[in-house]
Design a protein around this nucleic acid. Structure first.
Length: 186
DNA sequence: GCCAACGTTGGC
DNA sequence: GCCAACGTTGGC
């Protein structure tokens, strides 16, 4: 089993949104390297560190798991989507995504600052300078270390984070679960 | 809003 | 295939 780290802008689709929806298609990725990881290497059952970017604070907010693989990202076929790709065909879709399911939300976000401060996490991919990938592999030891940090944060379980529904995502992203719910952009 | 870093595009 | 220009990401 592999481990991963996936970024989502918190205001677009947060761990709380995934907790509510239970499952979501990881749509709207338009980077070939990220796509290749999803298409070629992710397997059902792989665990994912769920990272909030453009957030306050930015960092790992919880854990998700790959629940389906090899799905065509529906936004590429939607002419009204910002992620519409007219060059892609249904017969041979360019953008392949996975579906992920909620596993857990940490009592507190493990901030980027906290990650950087950990000796054990030196060399972690997401900490590399200039890293802009939204889907990247994560060393299993790093994964375990971050999970431990997330679970041992001081806040009482449930006493934290924004209340469910508080995420006023202007444009819901990644709501393209198996059922093909309305999608958004990022 | 700024800026560093990287990806993509397109002329040649 | 090179490379400059441009666009995007994402931390701050």
């Amino acid at each position: 089993m592999r481990h991963w780290l996936c970024k989502s802008e918190e205001t677009c689709y947060s761990i709380t949104d995934l907790e509510r929806d239970r499952r979501a298609g990881w749509d709207s990725v338009r980077n070939y390297q990220a796509r290749n990881f999803m298409r070629d290497q992710m397997k059902v059952g792989d665990l994912i560190l769920y990272y909030h970017s453009n957030a306050d604070p930015t960092g790992v907010a919880g854990i998700a798991r790959v629940s389906r693989t090899g799905l065509a990202d529906p936004t590429q076929f939607d002419p009204r989507s910002e992620f519409h790709d007219p060059k892609s065909s249904r017969d041979d879709p360019t953008w392949i995504m996975v579906e992920v399911e909620f596993v857990e939300r940490f009592p507190e976000v493990v901030t980027l600052t906290a990650l950087r401060a950990e000796k054990a996490l030196q060399g972690m991919t997401v900490l590399a300078r200039g890293n802009r990938l939204s889907v990247m592999p994560c060393d299993p030891d790093h994964f375990e270390h971050v999970r431990r940090m997330g679970r041992s944060s001081k806040a009482a379980p449930g006493a934290t984070g924004r209340a469910a529904g508080a995420s006023t995502a202007r444009e819901p992203r990644r709501a393209s679960a198996a059922g093909g719910r309305a999608l958004g952009k990022r």
